[in-house]
Simulated scan of single mutants.
Amino acid sequence: MNNPEEVIQRLDAVDYLADDGLAMAIFLALRLGKPLLLEGEPGVGKTAAAKALAQALDTPFLRLQCYEGLTAGEALYEWNYQRQLLHIRLAESHGAALDDSSLFTTEFLQERPILRAVRHDGPTAPVLLIDEIDRADDEFEALLFEFLGEAAVTIPELGTFAATRPPVVVLTSNRSRDLHDALRRRCLYHWIPFPTPDRAASIVRRAVEGASDPLIRDACEFIGRVRGLDLDKAPGLAETIDWVSALAALGVTELVAGDVLRTIGAIAKTPDDRDLIGGALPSASPSAPSSASSSAGVGSPAGGPMAPPTP
């Protein structure tokens, strides 16, 4: 990709809408060969950005999902001990001598996502997503320093493997904890904000085929208002897309309070949030008529569109 504008166009072609800031961050990461750290609230499209980048580049996509207790054996590499044991027994049955050099070879090496990205020998460099790095332990970050800085992995028994085509590395974080300064120094950085209602509507329109424009517009405005409430887990774009998909599946074309209550499980992920969102709605009940059968909004005595919740 020759410039940030081309990044926007290529991502747009795979139905990912990138703003100027994200496009510049991706362009510089590609041009400089640096890992890119994307931060933002859950559901703003960090993971989707890495997937879309792999599609736009027409290159393999590798993913490492981080979690507490993640080890090098699950992220970098591991030895196939069962095959090694079988090799030992076969050698013993034939009276052959064995040493470490015959047991610790690439034949018995199991590649995990990071080593697989380093040793990838295809015509294009893969995109490696290290997803939710903030969920992993501090110690795991230290395992990444060599890889992030040099696109290499050292295996004590075999030596150092360096990538012939350094992978495109994208790390994501929801900021559930602070990341080590040494990791941040090795990466370019970009914060993905939650989009405005208009931009969110454009994104949802791409993701949900068949949903009416009034429904998408009203739903995105509603989510924008809901995010101003004191929620345990504010709904993100992913939840917005799920919610509009559910509404469209029910045949809803215009948002009314009754439909919000019927599908509230798509955006409220805790009992407290369900009560808070429901309590912020205009007067309505679960038995209120659906817009699939009535175009009158239940939030207005005159039957107009549903009023948004008040933060």
Rank of each mutant, 00 (worst) to 15 (best):
R185L: 05
L64I: 04
S212N: 03
E5K: 13
V7G: 04
A266V: 03
S300P: 06
L70A: 04
E74K: 08
A50W: 05
E239N: 11
A234C: 02
S287T: 04
P271D: 11
Q9K: 14
V252C: 14
V7I: 11
A152C: 03
H94T: 01
L98A: 06
V169F: 13
L171N: 02
R205A: 00
S285H: 10
V244I: 05
P123S: 15
E6A: 02
Y67A: 13
R185Q: 11
R83L: 00
R89C: 01
L158R: 10
E41I: 02
A18E: 12
G73P: 04
L38W: 12
C66S: 13
S293Y: 14
I267L: 09
A249Q: 14
G299M: 07
G297T: 02
L32P: 06
L30K: 07
R89V: 02
L237D: 05
M306D: 03
L70R: 10
F147W: 12
V44L: 08
F27C: 07
D137M: 01
E111A: 00
A151G: 03
R225W: 15
L188R: 05
D131P: 03
I241D: 09
Q65S: 13
L276E: 08
R274V: 01
E221I: 10
R135A: 14
A48E: 14
P193E: 07
A23E: 11
S294T: 06
D259N: 03
I155P: 01
E68M: 11
R31C: 00
L255A: 06
E6P: 11
T240N: 05
A288S: 15
E6Q: 10
I130Y: 14
W79P: 00
V226C: 13
E150A: 09
D181E: 11
V256H: 15
P289R: 10
R119T: 15
A238E: 07
H87R: 14
A48S: 12
L70D: 08
F147S: 12
Q84M: 03
V7N: 09
I192Y: 12
P197F: 03
L98Q: 08
